[in-house]
């Protein structure tokens, strides 16, 4: 464990909690892409199957259970409890254009052709593009609630911190995983446009609104 991975995990946890609390307290999922949340639930489900097969640490196991639990709770709030507030007209990204290519790539480019490894690889590739429906929805509505921008900022920062974690681990532990690194770089790049808007607007107290 190093400071980049720990702060990355805490940033990821913060993002997940911020979103869950925002929906729960405001009793509304307006502006939130349910499709992205389904993709995240799929990412955690396919990545954390090793919960059943291997124990790494109490931290690792408990965080995985929290992530999976919150992901499904968020999907439940969006599609069941507060379904009336779900903005389906703007959440129109064609996720099959993400899942199918990512699924194919996971079969073609992986470290080991075993079910667990292919599912892990699928989850790594999927996570790198899972935020696209949410970013697409914001570009369609032309704006985002400030709390949603904080959620996105924490979510984007987490994987950027993981990039530093991988530099650290390569240098000190001689470990690197090219699949995770390339996907992590792609994932972080997808947030750059949002980071720019967040830093130049939201941090100056303005609302995040895109030229629609």
């Amino acid at each position: 464990m190093n400071v980049f991975r720990l702060t990355g995990d805490l940033s990821h946890l913060a993002a997940i909690i911020i979103l869950l609390l925002k929906i729960w307290k405001s009793r509304s999922c307006a502006g939130i892409s349910g499709k992205s949340q389904i993709l995240f639930a799929l990412v955690f489900t396919t990545r954390y199957l090793d919960l059943l097969t291997s124990f790494i640490s109490l931290y690792n196991t408990s965080m995985k259970i929290i992530y999976v639990g919150c992901a499904y709770a968020t999907v439940y709030l969006i599609y069941a409890k507060f379904r009336a507030t779900y903005d389906g007209n703007h959440d129109t990204f064609r996720v099959e254009f993400l899942v199918v290519p990512v699924g194919g790539l996971a079969f073609l480019v992986n470290h080991d052709f075993s079910p667990l490894e292919i599912l892990w690889t699928f989850s790594i590739y999927l996570e790198s593009v899972a935020i696209l429906p949410q970013l697409f929805m914001i570009s369609k509505t032309g704006e985002a609630e400030t709390i949603t921008t904080h959620y996105l900022f924490c979510l984007g920062v987490y994987r950027a911190l993981y990039l530093f974690n991988w530099i650290w681990r390569f240098y000190f532990e001689g470990f690197f995983d090219m699949i995770a690194i390339v996907a992590g770089v792609v994932q972080t790049i997808l947030y750059c446009d949002f980071f720019y808007l967040y830093i130049t607007k939201v941090l100056k107290g303005k609302k995040l609104s895109l030229p629609a």
């Binding site: 790494i56 690792n60 470990f175 995770a180």
Partner: peptide
């Protein structure tokens, strides 16, 4: 070897 991912990350 450099490559084996211990899968100890979240």
């Amino acid at each position: 070897d450099l490559h084996i991912n211990p899968k100890d990350e979240l």
